[in-house]
Design a protein around this nucleic acid. Structure first.
Lengths: 197, 197, 197, 197
DNA sequence: GATGAATGAGAATTCATTCAT
DNA sequence: GATGAATGAATTCTCATTCAT
């Protein structure tokens, strides 16, 4: 997946546009206006609108794999790894709120099979990374909560992150999302390390 | 908010249609076909497409308020209340998977301010009910986890429910969502009742 | 041309509606709303929308022929007859401004041949009556202006009345149209009676 | 108000279309057919149907101001100016009968406030030019009719022109409108120069 | 690479009219 | 007489895409 500079620009503006006006506002006309181009020009860089959407997901995937790839294999303590993931995500959203608007809106990509397939892949990447981290933490004795299955922990972690960001988005990005992320991180850490009776 | 029989039918088919084909597939033409009517006929029952979407949210709200209204005021134990909410939701989704496709897809309604306003209201209703239940549980000593702020608990509970359902939807409703709900419920119960050190 | 009470009511409201919203706002739906009826009900009284328009012209024609019929045959002085016509018209418009909006808007009826034919008839009725009056006035020596052909006088009289009313309408019926009518009448009288050199 | 060549073409055909079939026949579909284009193509040149109508009036205004602008300021005799105006208008209508169908049909533009506002402006332009000419003629002694107020003279002149053209239009442009215009001009000249007693 | 114009399909909505009740 | 629901055609406008220049 190599993109030209112009393609990156188009993807970027597409994300902004979707964030602002929803999938229904994501039209070639609107996109061209945002880019200061004519509609035809966009087709020099992408052969269809669907390909732009696909590229958005691919970018997200690439971004995610950069962060997650070594998530499990490295030897850092599990808690440190989780902290890193939290920080990375919330910092990223704080910097690019429009991404936050798009990345958790799977319904946007629901239309075409080719798109929703990739969305699922993206979701699974995160799940697997988290699962692996938790497992390694359990193995090392760092995560001592044994009553809760790791699959449930993953649901809770990903779910609460998603919901926190979704709420932030629905409030038009009011409030400090990084602070919110930290609060959530502490809670998650606490849950992961509570002693069994 | 009183709806005629026909309006209910239209709303119902609209939810199905959105579930199947996304908002982009939610066209008056498709809807009319699903209803076995002509396009014009729909406008005798709703004055615009937006009004149909609004009505969907209103129905969700009405449904929610029926379940949540007494959530806090009644004297049942908090755990019982939470169990009830979990059961109600997951049973509902199991019965009407298309609702699950729509209700957590806020981006569908992002287009128009009038719609997103109502979506936020719906979200807040659930938050407030849960907050109230947790608070009452904490007051009664039932929920003994004092280290975690109730706002964080709410995020975790709602977030994990939403994510569980979202995943189920993305898998095309494969698997037993009720069983998934129960597993999640147990985890949540466990988290709520862990002793502090 | 006999109309039932309800038909009169429909015609009346139709004129109002056209006056308010133009021909394009003259829809069965709007008309039904104005009448406090359903759309279907109107078809009990008129078999088509075109028939309503036709009836409007017929009413205008009937009204006109009542005023003009004896215009020429009676023995009153020409000036008195003209005064009467002026007064009658301007009083009528003052009372029913919406008629003023419709009666000089031939383009409204331009659509269908059956309509525009009747409009022409209405116009001719007025022309002939005036022509006849002027001729009788010239014969009796009352109208002494011999340099101007009576056809030109008719154009001037009808044209200036129409224009006066059109301007009044475009100003949203502001100002005293009866006073305007009197000023115009005096001018016309003056023109009709100026001595040749 | 600069128009592209294509915009001019569209405006031109729009005038023709309205002349032929009334505003109710002035549909984008009909217009596109007349232009040999698809409906969508029109929207590359005008952003709405209303904008086309607005442009028609603007063109009329521009045309009028070209003719009227110097109407008063130049030093030619008043009669000559009036003659010029008459000739210009009647020649124009003779050449483009469809314009005659549209320009005096204010009710066509009655629908939208933005349109009727401009129609009034157009009317006022003509009134003011004529008023100014008559005043200058009275000052110079050329127009010696002192008994008739200049406002009434304007009504008579404009009204009779309008009516003459309207009748010609209703007769489907039969007869020689230029000859009609000349007859009217002579009459007007006569009225303007009759001696007071 | 980009523009401007065009296309053809399809969007939401409105319309006059019909008809069973 | 009137209602409410429906129809089918038409309306304005938008869309993704194409292509000559």
């Amino acid at each position: 997946m190599k993109f030209t500079e112009m393609q990156f620009k188009i993807i970027d503006k597409s994300i902004d546009l979707i964030a602002e006006r929803g999938i229904q506002g994501f039209t070639i006309k609107n996109l061209a206006a945002k880019l200061g181009l004519t509609e035809g020009a966009i087709y020099r860089h992408f052969k269809s609108k669907e390909e732009i959407l696909l590229s958005i997901i691919k970018i997200f995937q690439a971004e995610a794999s950069k962060t997650l790839e070594n998530a499990c294999s490295t030897k850092y303590p599990a808690m440190e790894k989780i902290t890193k993931i939290f920080n990375h995500h919330f910092n990223f959203f704080a910097e690019k709120p429009s991404v936050a608007s798009v990345i958790f809106s799977e319904s946007i990509f629901q239309n075409k099979h080719s798109l929703s397939k990739e969305v699922k892949k993206l979701l699974n990447m995160h799940e697997e990374a988290l699962l692996c981290i938790i497992k390694s933490g359990q193995d090392s004795g760092e995560i001592i909560n044994g009553k809760i299955r790791k699959e449930e922990l993953v649901k809770i972690i990903i779910g609460s992150i998603r919901y926190t960001v979704t709420k932030w988005r629905l409030s038009n990005f009011k409030g400090d999302i990084i602070k919110e992320g930290n609060k959530l991180l502490n809670t998650v850490k606490y849950i992961l390390t509570i002693k069994m009776d």
